[in-house]
Amino acid sequence: QETIEVEDEEEARRVAKELRKKGYEVKIERRGNKWHVHRT
């Protein structure tokens, strides 16, 4: 599992979309004022 930390929701969604295109399962999680995209 890989976690990518980004600054805002828009970027989290963009990253998640790219990963989904490559066939990964992803989960977006908010952590305080950061966003984490988990590749599962």
Rank of each mutant, 00 (worst) to 15 (best):
E2F: 09
E5K: 13
R20V: 08
N33Q: 14
R14D: 02
V6R: 13
E10A: 14
V37I: 02
I28C: 10
E9D: 12
I28L: 12
I4F: 08
E10V: 15
I4W: 03
E29H: 04
E11K: 01
K21V: 11
G32E: 08
R39D: 01
Y24M: 08
H38N: 07
H36E: 09
T40G: 07
R30P: 08
R31V: 10
K34C: 03
K22G: 12
W35M: 02
K34R: 11
D8N: 15
Q1V: 09
R14M: 04
L19S: 09
T3E: 03
R20W: 04
E5L: 09
E7Y: 12
E7F: 03
T3D: 02
H36W: 08
D8V: 15
V6L: 13
R31G: 08
V26W: 06
V6K: 05
I4E: 01
E10F: 12
W35P: 00
L19V: 04
E29S: 10
E25Y: 09
A12W: 00
K34I: 03
D8G: 15
G32T: 02
E29L: 06
A16L: 02
I28S: 08
E2H: 05
H38G: 12
K17L: 10
K22Y: 00
R20P: 10
H38R: 10
E10Y: 12
I4Q: 02
K22P: 03
E18M: 08
E18R: 06
R14Q: 08
E11H: 13
E9T: 03
G32V: 08
H38A: 11
N33K: 13
R30E: 11
Q1D: 03
Y24L: 08
R13K: 06
I28T: 09
N33W: 04
V15C: 13
K34W: 04
D8W: 05
V6T: 05
K21M: 11
V37F: 00
W35C: 02
G32F: 01
K34L: 04
R31L: 08
I4V: 02
A16C: 02
I28A: 08
K27N: 01
D8L: 15
T40A: 04
R14N: 01
L19K: 02
G32S: 11
I4G: 01
K21Q: 11
I28Y: 04
V15Y: 02
A16Y: 02
V6S: 04
K22L: 04
H38Q: 15
V6Q: 07
E2Q: 11
K21E: 14
V26K: 00
K21R: 07
H38W: 09
E9V: 14
A16I: 02
I28E: 09
H38Y: 07
E25P: 09
E7Q: 15
R39K: 04
K27F: 01
V15R: 05
V15P: 00
E11V: 13
E2D: 12
R30Q: 01
A12S: 06
W35A: 04
N33Y: 01
K27Q: 12
E10N: 13
R31K: 11
Y24A: 12
Q1H: 02
L19A: 03
Q1W: 10
N33D: 06
W35L: 04
W35V: 05
L19E: 10
H36K: 11
V6P: 03
H36M: 12
T3M: 15
V6G: 02
V37S: 00
H36Y: 11
T40N: 05
R20G: 12
K22N: 03
Q1R: 11
K22H: 04
H38S: 12
E5I: 13
V15M: 14
A12E: 00
L19W: 13
V26D: 00
K27E: 09
R30C: 05
R20C: 14
H36D: 03
T3Q: 13
E5A: 15
V37E: 00
I28M: 10
R30D: 06
K22E: 13
Y24G: 12
E10K: 15
K21G: 15
E10T: 14
W35T: 07
